[in-house]
């Protein structure tokens, strides 16, 4: 058997980290895609999850904390032939990068966004993240969010996202299905992937998630936006996983047909005579 196209480098993650299952699943999904590694760009911000692109044999863009989305959409706009996948964490995506999260949903550029959501800041060792559970002053649980928890799926659907899903690192088969569907979705696709942080999150453990995650019913209609909003609000004793919402909507490329024809933007050339004609229009 020949060597798979996508392989992994040695990682710097903690033993038992949920990221291992995610990277293993992602590598498998990429090998199924029939896209050569040089046509795939893995983008990350900063954080443990954001290091994913460091550990897979593909093009890698490790940007700034919180800023993976603007870079990723621009890469895709510049070269529509590339498959662009963002892997980064809950702090990077919803905290530092919150404004970009909101507005890149609206752009609907054809990229995929995998948020490794462990409901805590891991690399900085244990501070609450926007998605940490809400608690009160008498609660000694760790991590503890005295304010409201950020609900990424609810916000993504409300902001106009065209593919919104949740999965769990402990269910690799489900995760692979979600990843594949997200990558194949034309437009911005978000998969919020619950994963335990074994070192710091003593609340949202593997057992915690295992007990609560529940695949959506077979009859669930992912195209019903109001129902999806309602479903997205469920996060407690049961946590729904699966594609909560999807719709076919024009992508960024479809809305800019003049820039997205057969020739990717990066290869387009303008004749010097056309440039000179534009200059001469100021005579």
């Amino acid at each position: 058997m020949s060597k798979p196209a996508f392989t992994n480098y040695e990682t710097a993650w903690c033993p038992g980290c949920g990221n291992f299952a995610i990277i293993e699943t992602l590598t498998g999904v990429l090998n199924q895609l029939e896209r050569p590694p040089h046509q795939v760009v893995l983008v990350g911000g900063i954080g443990q999850a954001a290091k994913t692109n460091q550990y897979i044999t593909a093009n890698g863009f490790s940007g700034l904390h919180g800023r993976s989305l603007p870079a990723a959409v621009a890469i895709k706009i510049a070269n529509d032939d590339l498959t662009v996948i963002v892997n980064t964490g809950d702090g990077d995506s919803y905290g530092e990068g919150g404004n970009h999260f909101l507005h890149n949903i609206r752009r609907n550029v054809d990229i995929t966004h995998f948020v490794h959501d462990n409901q805590i800041y891991g690399l900085t060792k244990g501070q609450p993240s926007p998605t940490s559970n809400r608690c009160d002053l008498t609660d000694n649980s760790n991590p503890c969010n005295l304010g409201a928890s950020f609900n990424p799926l609810l916000i993504a659907i409300a902001a106009g996202a065209t593919f919104v899903a949740r999965s769990f690192s402990g269910d690799k088969k489900h995760l692979a299905e979600m990843m594949t569907a997200a990558i194949q979705h034309p437009g911005y696709a978000l998969v919020d992937i619950l994963q335990p942080c074994v070192s710091f999150n003593k609340t949202n453990t593997f057992a915690y998630y295992k007990k609560r995650v529940k695949p959506l019913d077979e009859g669930y209609d992912a195209t019903n936006k109001l129902a999806a909003l309602e479903k997205a609000m469920e996060f407690g004793d049961t946590i729904p996983i699966g594609i909560l919402y999807r719709e076919q909507a024009p992508t960024y490329a479809a809305k800019h047909p003049e820039l997205f024809d057969k020739v990717p933007l990066v290869d387009k050339q303008i004749n010097q005579s056309d440039v000179q004609a534009l200059i001469n229009s100021y005579i």
Binding site: R67, P70, V73, I75, I77, L82, H103, R107, L265
Partner: peptide, 26 residues
């Protein structure tokens, strides 16, 4: 003139977009 023009949500996004596009060869 085949120029993708993006009005960014803020200047942080604007410059990170330009860097991303440049990485991709534009």
């Amino acid at each position: 003139m085949a120029i993708a023009v993006e009005q960014a949500e803020d200047e942080i996004a604007a410059i990170n977009m330009a860097i991303g596009a440049s990485y991709a060869g534009a």
